[in-house]
Computed example of a mutant assay.
Amino acid sequence: MTFRQMEVFIEVCECKSINKASAVYHVSQQGISKIVRELEKSWDANYFTEIAMEYLPQNMVRIFWMNVVLF
């Protein structure tokens, strides 16, 4: 996991949106999606579920978020 992937991962978690994360980092939506896909592929896992135009983190991501990122 690169630092850039971690930044994008955190931003998508916070925004719950690839579109909003792309605006924050001034990167296309396709670029953000590619970063998320590469990260998921490297760890062989799905981190987000798309529901009603929102990217919601899976349970394991929420646990990581609460225990690592927020502290």
Rank of each mutant, 00 (worst) to 15 (best):
S22I: 01
E40K: 03
V36G: 02
N46S: 07
I63F: 08
V27E: 14
A52M: 15
S22P: 00
N46G: 10
R62H: 13
D44Q: 13
E14P: 01
C15E: 09
F64K: 01
A21F: 01
S28I: 05
S28N: 03
L39Y: 08
R37W: 08
Q29A: 12
Q5F: 00
E40R: 08
I10P: 00
E50I: 01
V61P: 03
A52E: 11
R4D: 14
E54R: 13
Q30T: 12
K34T: 10
Q5P: 00
R62E: 14
L70W: 13
I18F: 10
I32L: 02
R62M: 10
Q58W: 01
W65P: 00
V69R: 07
M1R: 13
E54S: 03
Y47N: 11
R37K: 15
V36Y: 03
R62T: 10
V69K: 00
F48N: 04
I32N: 02
S17V: 02
E50S: 09
Y47K: 02
K41L: 13
K34G: 07
D44C: 09
V8I: 12
Q58A: 15
R62Y: 07
F9H: 08
I18C: 02
V12S: 04
S42G: 11
I35V: 08
Y55W: 06
E11C: 06
A21G: 00
N19I: 12
S42K: 15
V61T: 10
I51F: 11
E7N: 13
C13K: 03
E40L: 05
W43L: 15
S17I: 00
F64N: 08
V24F: 05
M60K: 06
I10G: 12
V12Y: 12
V61I: 05
E7K: 05
R4F: 03
A45P: 00
E14Y: 04
Y47T: 09
M6G: 07
S28L: 01
G31I: 02
M1S: 14
M1Y: 07
I10A: 14
P57Y: 06
V8Y: 14
M6S: 08
T49W: 01
V61N: 15
E40C: 13
E14Q: 07
